[in-house]
């Protein structure tokens, strides 16, 4: 089971990072969504994995419980990451509507000169 969680977190992180390195706002929003999943699972897993041990106290006797603290932290993190995504979407939307373009870089680095031309051309076409 541990390998399942670890590989899931790793894959989500890798995909999220790849997407936030793209040049368009929407790809970055998707990337951040994936990264939020990864971070939330990572934090949750820091309480270690447990099956059939929810942190709901059993009034009829002793029972084992999983670590409740990471769960509480992740719960608010999920809600906050929604707020963050919403603000980001709004900013991206505003930028696109104002400039007809959802590219995120102010300007291409000079070293990637040839690419600049194609980038602009496609932006104009889209």
């Amino acid at each position: 089971m541990e390998i399942v969680i670890a590989s899931t977190v790793g894959t989500l992180t890798a995909a999220g990072i790849y997407l936030i390195l793209r040049l368009r706002a929407f790809a970055i929003i998707l990337g951040l969504a994936l990264l939020s999943y990864a971070v939330n699972i990572f934090l949750f897993a820091s309480g270690r994995l447990a099956i059939n041990m929810p942190p709901i106290l059993n009034p009829y006797g002793d029972a084992a419980y999983t670590d409740p603290l990471p769960q509480a932290l992740v719960l608010t993190a999920i809600v906050i990451s929604f707020g963050m995504t919403a603000v980001l979407v709004m900013v991206a939307l505003g930028a696109f509507l104002e400039s007809d373009d959802d590219r995120i870089d102010i300007e291409e680095p000079a070293t990637e000169g040839p690419e600049q031309g194609t980038g602009k051309g496609e932006a104009g076409a889209s």
Binding site: E2, I5, A6, G10, T11, A15, I17, F42, A45, R48
Partner: peptide, 13 residues
């Protein structure tokens, strides 16, 4: 980065 995070998670789990 993803590999690093996976290894980290697996280690502490």
């Amino acid at each position: 980065a993803g590999g690093g995070v996976a290894a980290l998670s697996y280690t502490f789990l």
